[in-house]
Design a binder for these strands. Structure first.
Lengths: 192, 192
DNA sequence: CATCTATTTAGATGAACATCGACGGATACA
DNA sequence: TGTATCCGTCGATGTTCATCTAAATAGATG
């Protein structure tokens, strides 16, 4: 864990903010434990324990050794120490204030592949609007774009340029006349 | 914080397991902040921020300076460091396993009045079994008890000695012959 | 293959809690 | 004394999550 972004810390704290999971951590810190052993000690049903173990595994806090049908779990203490360092030096702490990834930024991050193109166009009307707004950075105000150029710009992100173009016009981000397009001022864009 | 009991840690993690509170911590780590300033920065209403600040104050994580009607909050970093030490030293960690008041101990605690007698005999078969096991500490192995003495011992906890006596025999904790009773070895007791 | 055991998945339920609007208390200031 | 500002309390509302039961999976064993 290089630096502590708020989402990572939040996930960690949520995992620890539960008595059952805390006690599981205590138990698997001592020695290997099976699911049913934990269930017995905690007075919970196996599915519940399994659920908690999955949460801890998702944070890479556990090591699992499978022996037949039995799963032996033990603590990976390095996992905890990573979080420890991430949290408690002051520099990282004030950084918690900054990283507000807004909802829109999260939407974009979620649909973006490593190569910078979009996985899909979201089904949700509002998310599609976010991605269209985002793509408007490809257009300068005061310039006129022939349809071929509009398509080329949009296809850098996703092949279905026709849909994106049409919706951009619907939201009044782009205007068209005689197959020539131009960017409208941002304060005239409609909002989702 | 002398040593990390599970309840204290749990309270701390619950406080941190929330994005708004984490971001508040980041903001008040930088400098003093008023409630409305935080509300603005977090895009929340004042009552919500007030609620979160109360949670952090309850853990003694904040310092508040009142200036007229404005409350300036800043982080008390020592607060965080206390929790840090409590958690991440290995000895304390496995200690999380111990404070198990086990389920059985909780059952006993729940049915016990301050004077050491039982409120009632639990309706649940399994809980009644726990309380019978617990009362077996009144009997020594290798000794023989006339019925009158058995009743006297049991009535120290609850007046219905007959029921308890009968069930102890059913669970093979006690054996009887000719109205004389004796304690059976613990590994022969049946379990609920 | 049939069966048993250890675990996981899926879906339902209930409790805890984050957030809000409405209101009230306190301080400052005209 | 009235009014504006800042904050906390209260009650309502919707969401998140811990837990359970039922059922599915998967290895072991006969």
């Amino acid at each position: 864990m290089p630096d502590a972004d708020i989402a990572t810390l939040l996930a960690f704290f949520k995992a620890m903010a539960n008595e059952s999971r805390l006690r599981i951590i205590g138990l698997v810190a001592e020695r290997e434990r099976s699911v049913q052993e934990l269930a017995e000690l905690l007075d919970l049903k196996e599915p519940t324990v399994s659920h908690h173990l999955a949460a801890l595994k998702a944070l890479d806090l556990l090591h699992v050794r499978v022996e037949g049908v039995t799963h032996w779990h033990r603590l990976r203490p390095e996992g905890l120490h990573d979080f420890n360092r991430a949290l408690f030096d002051q520099k990282d702490l004030t950084a918690l204030a900054k990283p507000e990834q807004t909802w829109e930024e999260k939407v974009i991050a979620n649909f973006l592949l490593p190569d910078g193109t979009l996985k899909t166009l979201p089904a949700s009307r509002r998310k599609r609007w976010v991605l269209l707004k985002w793509q408007m950075s490809g257009f300068e105000e005061g310039r006129r774009y022939p349809e071929k150029e509009v398509n080329a710009i949009l296809q850098r992100r996703h092949p279905d340029a026709a849909t994106m173009r049409r919706e951009m016009i619907g939201w009044k981000m782009l205007a068209r006349e005689n197959n020539v397009y131009w960017r409208l001022p941002e304060d005239q864009w409609e909002v989702a």
